[in-house]
Design a protein around this nucleic acid. Structure first.
Lengths: 284, 284
DNA sequence: ACTCGCCATCTTTATATGAGATGGCAAAAA
DNA sequence: TTTTTGCCATCTCATATAAAGATGGCGAGT
């Protein structure tokens, strides 16, 4: 249930004008678009239909603008990329800096978030593409395997090594907020083993998790590549976990009907041609 | 090769205005859409691109107008229908499949839930209509009797038949979560008889109730049509209950001010014209 | 050189768009 | 109960936008 007044406030228009516009539109279409009631207005089914069409139309207009501003020579314009926290931390920095250096006219925005949220972003045309945990199966999306990560358990260095999986029971789990597929993997594995963790704490950023693990607050499950450096510096220890749960694919997904701007094509080229995404090896 | 002047003549506009519009458009898009030469103008490649997009967009707008305006066409758009669990299980499957087959452009969504919740859904414009237990008396709603059901007590086959109503006292009652009017009927009847049931268990789905009754967990009250098949297969037994409590009307309700789309009218036609809803008879 | 048809610019008028004030109505609060 | 609040509809008035009309420059054919 919405309200004309609220819409007017959000759009910075006078309420009367919105009312009039809607009335004109209804007259023009000879149909009722809203139910009016004393708490505001609600879309009729025709209104919903119109809304769906309007969204399509606006999207096409958006696309038109993009196409016209995209000259084939210099990639330019906005480019919205989503990514999981972990990928953003390890795989992307070098890629992004290289991309930005080569195509300075592209206004690249990176948004980190859990896989689920990124998928939503793509489906709603808010993101052009995203790095998420694969595989993804959706009729409107194309996925492209980028790299495979090995998930490992990490603990602080002070505690003794985990002798058995049962030890997890006594530790606190530090995980990303739900929607993260690494977390799903972890929970799946623990469930399989009949282990119910003592306590779960949720975090939003990688640094927070690493810091807390290092401080002995608990344990976590992260890609080996992400934590390699921290192991080297002796901040944390890691422990392999059984194969089936250990391997996760990182895929790049985008809409089937995505407009292939030069900026977007060049971006995909960059991590396809070479193995640009293969992680940073530790140099001593 | 075209000319602005000619366009102006064809469109009944002054030439100057067309010129200005084109200039504004070019400025807005920061691109050149036409080559100007002394015999008129010609589209640049960008201009051609824009033209293609414009045609697409106009086509979509055309389509929008058609879909919204013309009401005597093939029914289309969204249609949200609510239903009680029991009606959905026995009466609706054939109706819905027939409807969907005849009007594939309608996007029909069925949401099952107790009567109370369905009524709320309609009052809040979330549902277009719903099958609920009648009679309903509400100033903003219209009801339409669809069918009458006979409620019967069901038990497992192992236990002896209920000799008296007092036997219920020793049995557990399996009912839908509150809001279900069958449950209200049952409680009303038991209250009348001064019977206070031993224990009540709440369920959300029909299958759960049937399964548990069959397993001897308790007894329940359901429409005869719903459990007919299960009686036939020897999973459960049933027992009639006194007339005044046994008969429940299933009615279809909708708002008085509902927008009567073709999709909605056809839907109501479908269960009005014939007795499409008279239940499935068991064929041996 | 001179039309002729073209596009661009400027001015004026008509129309559409937007703000603000006001009123009625029903639900929530006092 | 009465009051207040938050809705939407209607009206008036200012202003921005759209459209017409007049004028000028330019080059290609006559």
């Amino acid at each position: 249930m919405g309200s004309i007044s609220r819409a007017a406030r959000e759009l910075n228009y006078a309420q009367s004008n919105i009312t009039t516009k809607i009335q004109l539109l209804e007259t023009h279409l000879q149909t009722q678009l809203f139910y009016r009631h004393n708490r505001g207005i609600t879309l009729t089914s025709k209104g919903k239909t119109l809304l769906a069409y309007a969204e399509k139309i606006f999207h096409l207009i958006e696309e038109t603008n993009k196409v016209l501003k995209d000259d084939d020579q210099t990639p330019n314009g906005p480019l919205y990329i989503g990514s999981m926290e972990t990928t953003a931390a390890v795989r992307l920095p070098s890629l992004l800096s290289k991309y930005h250096h080569e195509y300075p006219d592209v206004d690249l925005t990176l948004k980190t978030g859990p896989t689920e949220q990124n998928i939503q972003g793509i489906l709603q045309y808010e993101l052009d593409g995203a790095f998420v945990a694969g595989p993804i199966d959706h009729p409107e999306l194309i996925q492209r395997t980028v790299i495979e990560e090995e998930l490992v358990l990490i603990t602080d260095t002070a505690h003794p090594a985990l002798s058995s999986i049962k030890d997890i029971q006594n530790r606190t789990l530090l995980v990303f907020r739900s929607g993260c597929s690494y977390r799903a993997k972890l929970e799946q594995w623990l469930h399989q083993e009949g282990v119910i963790p003592n306590k779960i704490m949720e975090f939003g950023t990688l640094e927070a998790i690493l810091g807390c693990v290092s401080a002995g607050l608990g344990i976590s499950l992260l890609p080996l590549s992400v934590i390699e450096k921290h192991v080297y510096y002796g901040e944390i220890k890691y422990h392999s976990i059984p194969g089936p749960y250990a391997i996760v694919q990182t895929v790049f997904v985008y809409r089937k009907d995505t407009l292939m701007t030069t900026a977007f094509i060049r971006f995909m080229d960059m991590f396809t041609e070479v193995n640009n995404l293969s992680g940073p090896t530790i140099t001593v």
